[in-house]
């Protein structure tokens, strides 16, 4: 079980990115983290993976606990060795290496005798990567690069996988492919924290979900509960008839702002 307890994060002195965020990731479950741009979703993953310092951020309060051990003060490498592995935003594959070398780099912390089995599992999950094993990472398509980024993280044999916007910039059919892959990874027993702006996809695959707004936790519950929630419908799922009508009515009653004379003629 991974627990995030009242975590607060700052970047530099002035930018408050997270405030008292608390939620849990039970073993073997997928937890979706929803939120708009700048809500603090990626920051939350960085706080868990211990990589805040790479982005000049720092945990100013709270704890991150994995299986009873505090991991928020650990070195990122030690967190990976515990099985908490992040796939960073923007894929960040090694473009100067081949697909195979990327996967080998992913297996650096995996004991040598288990590495071949881990690679076979990745190739079974992503047959395209096996076909393109000798090709440079730079020539892969966006979808393939995302698969490589996920596959590379799987080489670490994660127990908790932290995925940051895996559907970003991908065509709709690729998004559903990625969703299927996340479910498949989870079926193998790996818990997943899925940060997504594509709430439809995220709520379809997740067991539980939380929603962040300007660094604070606004909603949490099962994925079904959140999918039915009006707030989530309006904010992340494109809204529905009633709320749009309400919004239009609210706009009608909004007091008119004074206009400068030069504009009003």
């Amino acid at each position: 079980m991974l627990s995030v307890r009242q975590v607060s994060v700052r970047y530099g002195r002035s930018v408050r990115a997270l405030q008292d965020v608390t939620f849990e990731v039970p073993d073997g479950q997928i937890v979706a983290v929803l939120g708009s741009n700048g809500a603090g979703k990626s920051t939350l993953l960085r706080a868990i993976s211990g990589t805040l310092r790479l982005h000049r951020g720092a945990l100013t309060g709270g704890q991150v606990v994995h299986d009873g051990t505090r991991i928020d003060r650990m070195d990122p490498a030690a967190i990976v060795r515990r099985g908490v592995v992040q796939v960073p935003e923007g894929r960040q594959i090694f473009t100067r290496m081949t697909v195979e070398e990327n996967l080998r780099a992913g297996g650096l912390v995996t004991p040598a005798k288990r590495r071949a089995a881990a690679r076979d599992r990745v190739f079974a999950l992503f047959p395209q990567l096996a076909e393109r094993a000798k090709q440079s990472g730079a020539v892969l398509s966006g979808g393939e690069q995302q698969m490589l980024a996920i596959g590379r993280a799987l080489m670490c044999e994660p127990r908790v996988l932290l995925l940051d916007e895996p559907s970003l910039g991908l065509a709709p059919q690729l998004v559903s492919r990625i969703a299927g892959i996340i479910t498949e990874i989870n079926d193998g027993g790996t818990a997943v924290v899925l940060v997504e702006q594509n709430a439809t996809m995220a709520l379809r695959v997740a067991h539980r979900a939380v929603a962040l707004e300007v660094g604070e936790l606004r909603l949490s519950g099962t994925a079904d509960e959140l999918a039915r929630s009006d707030d989530v419908q309006r904010l992340y799922l494109g809204g529905h008839a009633e709320s749009e009508a309400e919004a239009a009515a609210a706009a009608e009653h909004r007091p008119r702002r004074p206009r400068l004379r030069v504009w009003s003629g």
Binding site: L54, P76, V80, P88, I93, F94, L108
Partner: peptide
């Protein structure tokens, strides 16, 4: 080579 190519990616791989 991992560190040379991408320090962030190398870090998240342990």
């Amino acid at each position: 080579r991992a560190v040379r190519d991408n320090e962030t990616a190398a870090t998240v791989l342990g």
